[in-house]
Amino acid sequence: MQYNRFGRLGTQVSRLGFGAMGLGGSFGSYGDKELVRSVLHSLERGVNFIDTARNYGESERILGLALKEWTGDKPFVASKIQSKGPGNLGWGQPIPVESAYPEGWLRESAEISLRMLGVETIDLMQLHQYWPQWDRVDYWMDELLRLKEEGKIRGIGISLPDQRHDIALSLAQSGKIDSVQTVFHIFDPLALDCLVPICQENDVAVIARCILDEGGLTGFLRADTVFGEGDFRQAYFDYLPREIYIERVRKLQEAFVPRYADSVAELAIRFALQHPGITAAISSMHVTRYADENIAAASRGPLPDDVFEEIRRHYRWVRNYYETKYWA
């Protein structure tokens, strides 16, 4: 396992992180024992960066159970403040910060996270949604800074709502935050154009998420794939006819598998970890087999530079599948 310094916080974190959205049932239903085992298994394999959120159903509670059982070095735990806006309000388009995070709500949400996780300090607390219009208002940052002064959180970050990487540029340059979490994968490498270099210049950590594009870059998707009850991907891959997505993945397979990677999933993971400006890349590892496969892929090391550049330049296919969720 490779490790990186997490920006100005200085902690060494695994470059491959445990994305804990799957602990909350977003990708199917699993039992608590199975999910706890997936966390412990990943920690045993060297993963020490875990990203969860209040919005992820039972994720924090289950992660708390795993942390209670874990006897090794404390992992770096990141969570996110739950937006108070109902439904999808404020995710697809901006709403006032007073609606998303009214005064006092950041503390209330953080306190719930601390209880659920069973920890005294959360290493990184992120806003689960952020819009640059909010920078005109100070109270939300003041609340986070007070939590930091009290030792309840160590660092402050933001998670971008979707592929619009540019909305974080001014805050990344402000010196007020420690990290930015953003969508980043083979089909959408645009964060490398501006966001990642600016974060590097300002010692702001970058957390890459959706590195397998919600599983699409594993090659699992078929025309007749059916998603189970509660799986949020029920509409995700139907933004366009599925055949278009499947064909894009097939072209990747033909061009790079097995010459440079054993699978498209391995190719996607190694691509996500290639650039030094990506501090950590998170993937759902709520099933131990997924953890083993992802860790094995990461251990293969970087792709040849010319292959990475070819993928970055010629296989990008930027689209906002979240629009099916915001504006069905």
Rank of each mutant, 00 (worst) to 15 (best):
1 M>S: 12
4 N>P: 00
4 N>M: 10
5 R>S: 14
15 R>Q: 12
16 L>P: 10
20 A>I: 04
23 L>S: 06
29 S>Q: 15
30 Y>M: 12
33 K>I: 04
33 K>T: 14
36 V>Q: 05
38 S>T: 01
39 V>M: 02
45 R>M: 14
45 R>V: 01
46 G>P: 05
49 F>N: 03
51 D>M: 06
52 T>G: 05
52 T>W: 02
66 A>V: 00
69 E>G: 02
73 D>M: 10
74 K>G: 08
76 F>R: 06
76 F>Y: 12
80 K>Y: 07
82 Q>L: 15
84 K>H: 12
85 G>A: 15
85 G>F: 09
88 N>H: 13
88 N>L: 13
92 G>P: 11
94 P>I: 01
99 S>Q: 15
106 L>W: 01
107 R>Q: 14
108 E>V: 11
110 A>G: 09
112 I>N: 12
116 M>W: 09
118 G>A: 07
121 T>K: 15
123 D>M: 07
123 D>W: 08
124 L>A: 07
124 L>R: 08
130 Y>M: 03
136 R>S: 11
138 D>T: 11
141 M>H: 14
141 M>A: 03
142 D>W: 03
144 L>A: 09
144 L>W: 06
148 K>E: 02
150 E>L: 13
152 K>I: 00
153 I>H: 04
155 G>M: 05
157 G>A: 04
157 G>S: 10
169 L>E: 01
171 L>W: 13
174 S>T: 07
176 K>C: 00
179 S>Y: 03
181 Q>C: 09
186 I>D: 03
186 I>Y: 04
187 F>E: 03
187 F>I: 03
190 L>W: 12
196 V>G: 00
197 P>F: 02
199 C>G: 01
200 Q>N: 08
203 D>Y: 05
204 V>I: 05
206 V>I: 15
209 R>Q: 11
209 R>N: 07
209 R>A: 04
210 C>L: 13
213 D>F: 14
214 E>Y: 08
214 E>W: 05
215 G>P: 09
217 L>N: 02
218 T>Y: 09
221 L>D: 07
226 V>H: 13
227 F>A: 05
229 E>N: 14
234 Q>D: 13
236 Y>K: 12
238 D>G: 11
240 L>V: 14
241 P>C: 10
242 R>T: 06
242 R>G: 05
244 I>Q: 12
247 E>C: 03
250 R>T: 11
252 L>K: 08
253 Q>C: 11
254 E>V: 15
256 F>V: 06
258 P>C: 10
258 P>I: 04
262 D>Q: 14
263 S>P: 10
264 V>P: 08
264 V>W: 07
266 E>G: 06
266 E>R: 04
267 L>M: 04
270 R>M: 00
281 A>E: 06
285 M>P: 11
286 H>Q: 13
287 V>L: 15
289 R>Y: 11
290 Y>I: 00
293 E>N: 14
297 A>V: 08
298 A>N: 00
303 L>F: 06
305 D>H: 07
307 V>S: 08
317 W>T: 03
318 V>D: 14
322 Y>V: 00
322 Y>M: 14
323 E>L: 14
324 T>Y: 01
327 W>R: 15
